[in-house]
């Protein structure tokens, strides 16, 4: 074999390895998977105002699903929401806005007034964190069950069975992360990390970099 060809081959291999390792070590591009489209919805919030999926376009939205009368010991989802809210600066979002939405699956009891009282009681910043529901129960089940693929079940007498879960949706209305069960890393930590990964993608994926990001999607370079 030609000596130059051989040296060329060595060089090619060496470059490939260095590239692969550089890519791995510095992790220049990480993305979140595009899981599915978030459902379109039309809810009523704690101020009796309309909350639609349309108006959330362009913002990152973190959803969770619960109900006000959840008896103790109830999954403490609010704590995670609050922790993420208070640590948002860590995610370095720049001018990207984040909304927090808690959807109640108990419209019979969780009227806007009840939701407002609830929001006040846990001391949430209701500009950023909204509580909403829809009195049409069938529609609600479609939104949360089929749309967000999250389980809840009416057990009667105002009691519900549900799994504690969060869903992160990006500005294009695509579900990018689900937090369905306690992983080794706390939910809040992962949500913060994922928000910053998403923000980076939104900021950087323009022009040629967009191709790199598409490649990252293709090769499943998912952030843990």
């Amino acid at each position: 074999m030609n000596k130059y060809l051989l040296n060329g081959l060595y060089a090619l291999f060496a470059i490939l390895i260095i590239l692969a390792f550089a890519f791995k070590l510095f992790q220049p591009i990480k993305v979140l998977p595009r899981m599915q489209l978030a459902p379109a919805f039309n809810l009523t919030d704690q101020n009796d105002a309309r909350l639609t999926s349309e108006e959330l376009r362009g913002k990152f939205v973190l959803y969770n699903f619960t109900y006000v009368n959840c008896p103790a010991p109830c999954y403490n989802l609010n704590k995670t929401m609050q922790e993420v809210q208070s640590r948002l600066s860590e995610a370095q979002l720049g001018d990207i806005q984040v909304e927090f939405i808690t959807i109640s699956f108990d419209p019979d009891r969780d009227s806007p007034t009840v939701l407002r009282t609830y929001a006040d009681s846990i001391g949430s910043d209701t500009k950023q964190w909204r509580f909403a529901t829809n009195t049409n129960k069938a529609l609600l089940k479609t939104i949360i069950g089929s749309g967000f693929e999250t389980y809840y079940e009416d057990k009667g007498e105002g009691k519900f069975a549900f799994d504690p879960s969060f869903v992160l949706v990006d500005g294009w209305g695509i579900v990018r992360a689900e937090y369905r069960y306690h992983a080794e890393v706390s939910d809040a930590d992962r949500i913060i990390r994922h928000l910053s990964v998403l923000a980076e993608e939104v900021r950087n994926s323009t022009g040629t970099a967009k191709l790199a990001y598409e490649a990252a999607h293709l090769f499943l370079c998912y952030a843990p």
Binding site: M1, L9, Y10, F13, A14, L16, I17, A20, F21, P224
Partner: peptide, 26 residues
């Protein structure tokens, strides 16, 4: 070239690093 060792050994190691490296690293 069928009796030369170095290119093949380097090739083997390089391929291992390429297809095992990223996953093992993670």
């Amino acid at each position: 070239w069928l009796d030369r060792w170095a290119p093949w050994i380097y090739g083997a190691l390089a391929l291992i690093v390429l297809v095992y490296g990223p996953v093992l690293f993670d």
